[in-house]
Design a protein around this nucleic acid. Structure first.
Length: 780
DNA sequence: ATGCCTCGAGTTCA
DNA sequence: CTCGAGGCAT
């Protein structure tokens, strides 16, 4: 029993020492802080419970690691201690209770401040002059980095004011502001410099440069938070008063540092800083509480490595270590094969994470993650977990680099990658069940046909049991089909509910689903086009198509080059759309959807601006015919009335139209290819069609927001964001996803974040909810 | 060609 | 939200 505990203690000590060395000496940590803290606590508890295991050299007895020797060693007259940690309200309550029991003096006053994620240093002033600066090192002695610290503008070389002690040591944190860190890295990337991993490492690495000139180039800053040795003078009786004095003497002190009372005060402060955290210009990993009066601090004293009168209250770890059990792949709607990591569940930033996307094969290769690896996961951008790094030391032996499967795990078709592209795709297209299921899921999604209650599981089962070949089958599902599907699915999974065994069948969900499918039959052209899941045709492009052509039948017949007449649609998107419509299978699906009751309720006349599509010269340029430059196309446009006339023309007419023989030859050769001739023929028909339908110019009334681009952000009280978007679009506005200088105005609800900040930065008009509502009422 | 600016597509958890 | 890539102005 004791033997195993002793082994565990030895193992923990070894790991902690290694990690500490990497962190403090090499500036290259290989495990997250949270993991370090966890191991240190385990060892601490072990040693507390079994004092015979506690050794003098244990990591629990000191703060960091010995200096690397490149800088002179500085012995701290008063050790630079680290703090105990609290991760929960209970631990903070315990901290306060312990002080209460010792001091017995009623409501306690604490100084509270953010805990910066930087590098702790000590600055020594004699007669008010900066004489020496040192890193914390192992707490007892650190490295002399005076020359480097002198380059920091935030550190006074001579104290301001008066009344300072003859000898004064100021402690604080050197850090790199986030924005400066980004800027620095951007510059480094552009000029091939060293890219810093994160602000903390950036600060640590910068201070440990042997050449102060290098340090001077780094955007470092400093906050004072305490004092060390004081001689030949006196300081106030409280920490807060001392901070105020330090500020007068010329030190930056965080203006978030404040005084609070009792446990409630501490916890309220923690929440306030936590809420403000993302908006702060620097990284913090928690807050620090210190008993404010020095007399009380002296009375409380220290436990082995930390003061009893202070504690660090840490935010939930944003990074954690866990084991990657396997790398799986997903097949998306477009056939994209995406690798993702299945991991042992771990708490990160307050939620349990088990899976994280690995984006694509290149990303996996860059990280070199393998099955069984120990990995560091982080929740990036607030929510989405990502695998940051592999802990190579912990890699099991005999692993192989991961490689993309050559066959689709779902349908067995070959997995291929387009030249130069990042994604690998399953080549099975609609014969791949995964792609079919995803296609239906997309079709039913809220922004497409909006079929409520049709989730992925139901779709999978319906497809599996043969009720669903393509999306048009949704519209011939019966109540019995659904119930039968459910029965077979339950049977297969062995999850037959007790109620069913008792002879009762729940049908409410199926009634609702049938009803939802029926409701979705009436839809808009934009939703319908989006729902089809055409490559490159997302919500925005679908809206543009609907707005410009107005009618499904017209779009179905259009030769692809004409799609390029719509703003923001270029060759790539037009070709993808044409390719989709050229497949008889797709046209049949559309036919069946219409035959089974799907109705487009907002058909209208084409946009008058499409008149330019009637121009033969424009059309010829769009067709991308070899040798037909815009100039040549113009000549042909002048010589022939329309595409039909060109098709009818004998070859020699091309030459008489002013075309050089070589160019005319290229055109004739192009036309000899049957598909091309067909394209031109269809273009001729489409032109005739359009000509018949186009309304007179200016017939369509322009909305009050015509030509305006708006961006919505934050939460609106009176309506959903989508609803607001629709209303603005109805008035002619275009709703964009991000703020740029082209944005006309931003509508900001409550808790608006980065987009509002960007708008303010660019000086773009911002509407609040009241202004939006007033505008909508006025133009209803 | 280059550099914005958008859009599309894929994604996590409660 | 973040990446990759298309569209378009320069």
């Amino acid at each position: 029993m004791t033997a195993t505990l002793a082994e565990r203690a030895a193992e923990l000590r070894k790991k902690l020492e290694d990690a500490s060395y990497r962190y403090h000496v090499l500036d290259a940590p290989d495990i997250p802080d949270a993991e370090y803290d966890r191991m240190l606590r385990e060892l601490d508890e072990l040693e507390a419970a079994h004092p015979e295991l506690a050794l003098p050299g244990s990591p629990t007895r000191r703060v960091g690691s010995a200096p690397s020797g490149r800088f002179a060693e500085v012995r701290h007259a008063i050790p630079m201690l680290s703090l105990g940690n609290a991760f929960s309200d209970e631990e903070v309550q315990d901290f306060v209770r312990r002080i209460d029991e010792t001091l017995d003096r009623g409501e306690l006053v604490f100084s509270a401040e953010p805990k910066l994620d930087g590098l702790a240093i000590s600055l020594r002033y004699e007669q008010g002059v900066f004489v020496q600066g040192a890193t914390r090192g192992d707490g007892a002695s650190g490295e002399d980095v005076t020359a480097n610290l002198r380059t920091l503008k935030a550190i006074p070389l001579q104290l301001r004011g008066s009344g300072w002690p003859e000898v004064l040591e100021v402690r604080g944190e050197v850090y790199m502001p986030r924005a400066d860190f980004e800027k620095y890295n951007e510059h480094a990337r552009l000029h091939g410099g060293k890219v810093l991993a994160n602000p903390r490492n950036g600060a640590a690495g910068s201070l440990r440069q042997l050449d102060p000139a290098v340090t001077a180039q780094r955007p470092l800053s400093f906050f004072a938070y305490g004092i060390g040795e004081v001689a030949g003078g006196a300081l106030p009786a409280t920490h807060s008063a001392t901070l105020a004095l330090l500020r007068e003497w010329g030190f930056p002190v965080s203006d978030l540092a404040t005084v609070v009372q009792g446990v409630e005060g501490l916890l309220a402060y923690f929440r306030r800083i936590g809420a403000a955290r993302d908006g702060l210009p620097f990284d913090i990993d928690g807050v620090v509480y210190k008993l404010d009066d020095y007399a009380g601090q002296r009375e409380l004293g220290f436990v082995s490595r930390a003061p009893r009168w202070a504690i660090a209250h840490k935010f939930p770890a944003q990074e954690q270590m866990t084991v990657l059990e396997s790398i799986e792949v997903n097949v998306g709607r477009t056939g994209a094969v995406t690798p993702w990591a299945l991991m042992k569940p771990v708490q990160v930033g307050g939620v349990t994470v088990t899976r994280a996307t690995l984006h694509n094969a290149d990303h996996v290769a860059r990280l070199d993650v393998r099955n069984g690896d120990t990995v560091i996961v982080r929740r990036a951008g607030d929510v989405i977990p990502e695998v940051v790094q592999v802990v190579l030391d912990q890699r099991p032996s005999g692993t192989q680099p991961w490689s993309m499967p050559t066959r689709c795990p779902v349908c067995g078709a070959e997995v291929v990658r387009e030249e130069g592209a990042a994604v690998w795709r399953c080549s099975g297209e609609l014969s791949c069940p995964a792609q079919r299921v995803q296609a239906v899921f997309h079709f039913a999604s809220r922004r497409a046909m909006d079929i409520d209650g049709l989730g992925e599981r139901y779709i999978e089962s319906l497809a599996e049991f043969g009720y669903l070949q393509d999306v048009s089958d949704l519209y011939r599902l019966t109540l019995d089909d659904l119930l039968e599907m459910k029965r077979r699915a339950d049977e297969r999974d062995g999850t037959v509910p007790e109620t069913v065994k008792a002879g009762k069948v729940a049908t409410k969900w199926a009634d609702n689903l049938i009803e939802a499918i029926d409701r979705s039959r009436d839809t808009t052209l934009a939703r319908f086009l989006f729902a089809l899941g055409i490559e490159h045709v997302g919500e925005s492009t679908a809206k543009a198509l609907a707005q410009w052509f107005g009618d499904l039948e017209l779009i179905r017949r259009l030769p692809w080059p004409l799609f390029k007449r719509v703003p923001d649609i270029g060759g790539e998107v037009a070709r993808a759309l044409g390719h989709f419509l050229d497949q008889p299978g797709n046209q049949q699906v559309i036919d069946r959807l219409l035959a089974r009751g799907v109705r487009i309720t907002d058909a209208r006349a084409p946009n008058p601006k499409l008149a330019e599509a009637l121009d033969l010269a424009t059309l010829l340029v769009d067709l991308e015919i070899p040798k037909i430059t815009p100039v040549r196309a113009g000549q042909l446009g002048g010589a022939f009335a329309d595409a039909q006339a060109l098709l009818d023309a004998p070859v020699h007419n091309l030459v008489t139209a002013g075309l050089p023989a070589e160019t005319a030859g290229a055109l004739v050769a192009w036309l000899e290819i049957e598909a091309n001739a067909g394209l031109l023929l269809r273009a001729a028909q489409a032109q005739a069609d359009l000509r018949a339908r186009l309304p007179e110019r200016g017939e369509q009334a322009a909305g009050p927001l015509e030509g305006k681009t708006v961006v919505l952000t934050g939460t609106l009280a009176s309506m959903g964001r989508d609803e607001a978007k629709e209303k603005l679009e109805a008035l002619g506005a275009k709703a964009a996803g991000s703020v740029s200088k082209k944005t006309s105005f931003v509508v900001a609800g409550s808790e608006a974040g980065s987009k509002l900040a960007k708008a303010e930065e660019l000086g773009i008009e911002v509407w609040d909810e009241a202004k939006l509502l007033a505008f909508l009422v006025e133009h209803a």
